[in-house]
């Protein structure tokens, strides 16, 4: 897994500091070409992995990259699913069955409907869950997707409810059908690690806020520090700059000193910011080598 992953909040008008800034970004990126230009810039600067929501607009980015394998053949998408708004709206508009039909993967409606229908009738979430994963993955067909993430709003809802089985179903399906590593995004890292342990999901890839000021590190800064030091997992740090509250150099210097951080995910809209982040990471994290994606035997990673 690359040390530096590119995020997509800036492309969709998500900004945790300012609604004005969010709107300005939404305006700038309403043309998909503007998004692709920034991704091209990131690639030029040596950032080749993109953690992205399974938003409809990402499908356009996928189409663009699929069409030019020579340039983008090594570019890695790391889909974060589900894009929850899409389902909420579809179910409201078309009902549950209509929504399922809309999101049916290429294997055919009948097959998918069977998997979903049987699952619904048995009150068994496995069939319906794998069906939805396949629907979300449709846009990435033919592209590299080494890690597939369950995004935080849905993950944390399931975590709170105690729907632990969903994490196992997700992990198994992502591995078996897509030959990818399951990834988990959470705002509640310590609690999730306990549950993944309990489920026997070893050395998981977990993405959460990790920053110097403890912003949105739910469960407490100390618990995060202890987890990084003592637990066996591959941490991806997000919100490293705490939405801009920490100056870039201070933020990167700090995160690079933390044990067990495999990658940093960051969002940026300008070449200057991408370049600056890349340079800071190269400066403060020179000795780190990219982690292997295949699960390593116990004891090899961490510490």
């Amino acid at each position: 897994m690359d040390r530096l992953l590119f995020g997509d909040n800036q492309f969709f008008g998500v900004n945790h500091m300012s609604e004005e800034k969010a709107r300005a970004q939404a305006m700038r990126f309403q043309d998909i070409k503007a998004v692709i230009d920034v991704l091209d810039t990131a690639m030029d600067e040596g950032v080749n992995a993109f953690m992205c929501t399974t938003h409809d607009r990402i499908a356009q980015v996928c189409d663009h990259m699929r069409a030019d394998a020579a340039r983008y053949g090594n570019f890695a998408f790391m889909p974060c699913m589900p894009y929850a708004h899409k389902y909420a709206n579809a179910v409201t508009d078309d009902g549950i069955l209509g929504a399922l039909k809309r999101f049916t993967p290429d294997e055919g409606f009948l097959n998918a409907a069977l998997r979903g229908g049987v699952s619904l009738a048995r009150k068994d979430i496995e069939g319906i869950t794998t069906l939805l994963i396949d629907a979300e993955m449709k846009m990435f067909a033919g592209l590299k997707t080494p890690v597939i993430f369950l995004q935080n709003v849905v993950l944390d809802l399931l975590l709170g409810l105690g729907f632990k089985e969903a994490f196992r179903i997700f992990a198994d399906h992502v591995k078996s059908r897509y030959n990818a590593e399951p990834g988990f995004i959470t705002m509640n890292l310590p609690r999730l690690l306990d549950v993944l342990d309990e489920l026997g999901i070893e050395n998981p890839i977990v993405c959460s806020n990790i920053n110097k000021i403890g912003f949105r590190m739910s469960g407490g800064f100390e618990a995060y520090a202890a987890a990084l030091k003592e637990r066996r997992f591959r941490a991806i740090a997000m919100s490293v700059f705490a939405s801009g509250a920490i100056p870039p150099q201070e933020a990167i210097e700090w995160i690079c000193r933390q044990p067990n951080v495999a990658s940093i995910v960051f969002g940026a809209s300008s070449r200057a910011n991408i370049k600056n982040t890349k340079e800071l990471v190269d400066r403060y994290w020179p000795s780190a080598h990219p982690l292997e994606l295949t699960p390593a035997p116990a004891g090899e990673l961490g510490q």
């Binding site: 945790h16 500091m17 300012s18 709003v153 944390d156 809802l157 709170g160 705002m187 509640n188 609690r191 000021i213 403890g214 912003f215 949105r216 590190m217 739910s218 469960g219 407490g220 705490a242 939405s243 801009g244 509250a245």
Partner: peptide, 17 residues
Amino acid sequence: RYTTDMTAPVWFYLRGE
């Protein structure tokens, strides 16, 4: 003043502190 200065941490985060 930004949300990062004004928001106290919570035991569990779902949709907003």
